[in-house]
Structure formats: C-alpha cells, structure tokens
C-alpha cells in the first residue's frame, strides 16, 4: 500500500506492507535510527515519537495508520544545530545514563511540557509513566524536565 507522510518536515512516499510497524518505517525506510526499539510490547516507551502533535509508541502502530500524518522524531527537535530546550536540559542535568531510553524520554517530556508548561514533580512522573529507564536514572530525568520548564518560563 502506498503511504505519504511527513517526518521532521520532510515528505516520504513509499509502498509498504500493511504489517510494517511505524518504528520499522522510521528506522529502516527513512533511516532515522534515533527512535529506539526497546521492549517491542508497548511498555518501555523508547520508541516514542510525535504523531500530529501527540506522543505515541511507534512499535504499536502500523505505518499505514500514519498515512497523511506529520511525525516528529528526536532527530527533528534540534533547529540549525541548536538543541531543543528539552534536549539542552537533559544535557545540563545529566538526564541519562546509558542513553538508550533517552529519545523516548525526551519525546514524552516534550508532550508533558506542551500540555502543561509548569508541571509539578508528580505531574512529570505521571507524564513519564509510559517510559522505562533500565539504568533507573529517573531522578535526573525528572530534574531535566523541571529544568526545561523553568528555562522556558524565563
């Protein structure tokens, strides 16, 4: 089936099998390997991307369902070499250890801040319930989201 979609502002038109998962389209067709395949069972959130402004797990969606959609992956956040404020905050607060969960964490964090520019710690943790860090470095991730919120408010 032929699908057309936009990823990070670039248009893609491709014939795909209906069973191709969106994550496989992103990684193998579009060559964007920033989005990670973790658990493959929609629990870990490493594959989180933005679909029409909403954070979704790209391992639990077929690429054909994204026909006509606008997708943003972690590669689409930086602008002209300047990191997005959420990326900047993860850098500054050391919101990562091994880094595997980081793309998903950053995309989920962006969703939190899009909907609530100054979340409480509890709201940040609630917003990250769909993302797992197996290094268990949650404290610095939460700090990073709060720092991004504080920075955006300046």
């Amino acid at each position: 089936m032929k699908i057309n979609l936009s990823i990070n502002g670039k248009s893609y038109s491709q014939d795909v099998e209906p069973r191709l998962l969106l994550i496989h389209f992103l990684r193998e067709v579009a060559g964007l390997t920033g989005t990670h395949m973790g658990c493959e069972t929609s629990l870990c959130g490493a594959c989180t991307v933005e679909l029409n402004g909403k954070a979704i797990k790209s391992c639990t969606m077929f690429a054909v369902q994204a026909n006509g959609a606008e997708i943003v992956t972690v590669e689409g956040l930086a602008n002209n070499g300047k990191l997005d404020p959420v990326q900047e905050a993860f850098w500054n607060e050391h919101g990562l250890q091994c880094g595997f969960c980081t793309p998903g964490m950053i995309m989920a964090s962006k969703q939190i801040l899009d909907r609530n520019p100054s979340p409480t710690e509890e709201e940040v943790r609630h917003g990250l319930e769909g993302n797992v860090c197996r290094c268990t470095g949650y404290q610095h991730i939460v700090n990073a989201v709060k720092a991004a919120a504080a920075g955006a408010g300046k």
């Binding site: 679909l51 909403k54 969606m61 989920a108 917003g127 993302n131």
Partner: peptide, 9 residues
Amino acid sequence: IGDVQVRNM
C-alpha cells in the same frame, strides 16, 4: 488508563 502514549491512541 495505561500511560500518556496509550491514552493518546
């Protein structure tokens, strides 16, 4: 229900 990503879809 579930988590943010699940509630979005």
